[in-house]
């Protein structure tokens, strides 16, 4: 691990984290994971299906209780306080279809102190999404964009984006990545989980490779390019070759 990570005050600290789902026998979805993530990085959380990425993300967000081990966000256990500093985009569409876009903006504004309505409306306008549109009338892709706008309109310390570009067309992917970069606060960290490495590797500072619930590699993108002489995508394909 690069020395700069050791010296920086950790935004996210994971110690010996394990997760076993009920009914899965002794199989661990996340297995004795240790991770320290500093501020000011854009990190790709990469790995094949079922390697434990979403389980790890859920535990960081307090959506799953670990079987053992600890997660600290800004020195706090996952809970009401840690949720103030994490802006989370799940792989599911979590918006209430009965609400209008404007009502969702108000909802975020009511609950998150760091949410900027101006930023949200500005991004909605740039995408031509009417705040008066009811969510059930929007396509899946547009709903995902609304969700991303809401998440990125927060001035959070840690952004966790689970598969933000899966299931959207290439043009929308570009917009989403642009949105992430444009709204990125240099003091915060973005953890981005995806399979579509080639699309995102240019925006990443670091990558985390996971395999069978364990941390396989945590290094910088530059280190992969320098030491392996390969792109992250090519290196990923080599590491996870079936």
């Amino acid at each position: 691990m690069n020395e700069q990570y050791m010296n920086a005050a950790p935004l996210l600290q994971i110690n010996d984290l394990c997760k076993r789902y009920p009914g899965m026998g002794s199989y661990m979805s996340v297995f004795h994971m240790n991770l320290t993530i500093p501020r000011g990085r854009i990190i790709g959380l990469l790995g094949p299906n079922g390697c434990g990425k979403t389980t790890l993300i859920k535990m960081i967000n307090g959506l799953l209780a670990p079987t053992s081990g600890t997660v600290y966000i800004n020195g706090m256990f996952p809970g009401a306080q840690s949720k103030r500093v994490i802006s989370y985009l799940p792989e599911r569409t979590y918006l209430d279809n009965g609400m209008k876009v404007r009502q969702m903006v108000d909802y975020f504004g009511d609950f998150y102190e760091d949410f900027s309505k101006e930023k949200a409306y500005s991004m909605l306008e740039s995408l031509g999404i009417s705040p008066e549109a009811r969510l059930k009338t929007l396509s899946k892709g547009t709903k995902e964009k609304v969700q991303l706008i809401l998440v990125m309109s927060r001035n959070a310390e840690l952004y966790i984006l689970d598969e933000p570009i899966a299931g959207v067309d290439p043009a929308a992917r570009d917009y989403i990545l642009r949105t992430i970069i444009t709204n990125y606060n240099p003091n915060s960290t973005i953890i981005l989980s995806t399979h579509l490495i080639s699309d995102i590797e240019n925006v990443l500072d670091d990558v985390i490779f996971m395999k069978n619930g364990s941390l396989m590699l945590y290094t910088s993108v530059d280190a992969i390019r320098d030491q392996q002489n390969k792109s992250v995508d090519a290196y990923f394909r080599e590491v996870y070759a079936c």
């Binding site: 959506l63 009401a80 103030r84 989370y88 599911r92 979590y94 918006l95 609950f111």
Partner: peptide, 12 residues
């Protein structure tokens, strides 16, 4: 799915 929003609100 709406639970993802509900449970990530900054409330206990």
């Amino acid at each position: 799915d709406q639970g993802y929003l509900t449970h990530t609100l900054p409330v206990t």
